[in-house]
Design a protein around this nucleic acid. Structure first.
Lengths: 207, 207
DNA sequence: CAAATGTTGGTAACAGTGTTACCGTACAGA
DNA sequence: TCTGTACGGTAACACTGTTACCAACATTTG
């Protein structure tokens, strides 16, 4: 065996262990919430020492960032699964529904990603870039709506930003328990359609 | 001295101590953020033992709830300071500005009140009622707008809810660092005016 | 081939957190 | 004066994230 073989095997092993730890952390996050994300708990469930988390992730901060990125990856998958529609506005409306669906399906992830559920954590600059990339999916659909003349009156980024703010605000208050599910759904629809309405063409405003 | 005198003096003393501790906690929250809110730190700064916090507040949970209520009291004061305007819609717009102003002036309080910045804390039912009461100020102004015919198309609670969702979403993302102050202000105005627009009378929509 | 080097990971400790058992102290009532 | 009760300070407990120490290992060097 040459010298590289061992290093390679070791690194591959580390990749596997890293994935296993991340999987354990994901399980804990989903099943027991952000409070269960302690270094001892995760390492214990994964069957290793706490030290491994520090060598592989650099501490709880790094592990949380990995979870954060995992959350955005799942979110992106969810948004990419929205079927293409020749009418960009229909696709945008579907994306809006998907935003809330994801938050309700993965509330723990959403809390970690957007509500700072892990106390000391703030994502690094490159991690924030990844978040921006996920968000750009929304901008792209809005951009298509503008090109197709289904929306007008502001730039794609402006409309996407206010939509994001509205969706996040509604979902955030719902997750915080200020609205029950049925009421939150009605309010979410009313809010999002209201936000969109001023940017629709006049004959479209009946919706 | 009758027996009640001592008890009364003791209770009054406790009220004073309680206020002093709450004041210390407020100072720590505003100056150093939610992370500085530890029982030892607060009791140390206040010059007493940790035990006092447990007898007067019942633990960190109770102290956090007291801070939470304090935040809503300040918020309510801020909203009540919005000058009366014969045009309810003008007053509503002023209230909308005040919402963001408060969040930017007291970001630590806002994080505790609406973003769960103190890890284990969830407000009790009576505390949530107080929050609702503060929120009813917004409903009342919207109600006036409906009565005066400045808004239409939905109930007062519906419009107030979606407005709250929008304001909270924008402020929340701004406080989380996704937008710088100038951009956040533009987006906030665009979002809130967009949300209101579908409920305005047709001749008012030019704004 | 043997010794030095560097990395990994387990153990145990450190400082910090919220919380509470223990105990002395002060008062009210008998 | 004696008993009972509530308060509050000290010290401990079970946690948290983090790291110094050390043994084990493969690689590199003499």
């Amino acid at each position: 065996m040459s010298s590289t073989t061992y290093r390679q095997a070791q690194q591959e092993g580390q990749v596997v262990v890293r994935a296993a730890i991340l999987d354990t952390a994901t399980h804990l996050l989903i099943n027991e919430g952000p409070a269960a994300l302690t270094v001892r708990r995760i390492s214990g469930e994964a069957g290793c020492s706490t030290k491994v988390i520090y060598t592989l992730f650099g501490g709880k901060e790094g592990l949380t960032e990995a979870l954060w990125l995992e959350g955005f990856a799942r979110f992106e998958q969810r948004l990419l699964a929205v079927p293409f529609d020749p009418d960009a506005l229909t696709e945008l409306r579907a994306g809006i529904e998907t935003y809330r669906d994801y938050a309700l399906e993965q509330p723990a992830y959403y809390r970690v990603m957007f509500q700072g559920a892990v106390p000391g954590f703030t994502p690094s600059r490159p991690a924030q870039e990844v978040a921006r990339r996920t968000f750009s999916l929304l901008v792209a659909v809005v951009s298509r709506c503008l090109e197709e003349g289904r929306l007008r009156g502001a730039t794609d980024v402006e409309i996407a930003d206010v939509l994001w703010m509205a969706m996040h605000g509604a979902v955030s208050l719902e997750l915080s328990g200020y609205f029950d599910r049925a009421e939150a759904e009605r309010r979410y629809r009313l809010l999002c359609s209201s936000v969109l309405k001023p940017f629709l063409t006049p004959d479209e405003r009946t919706t």
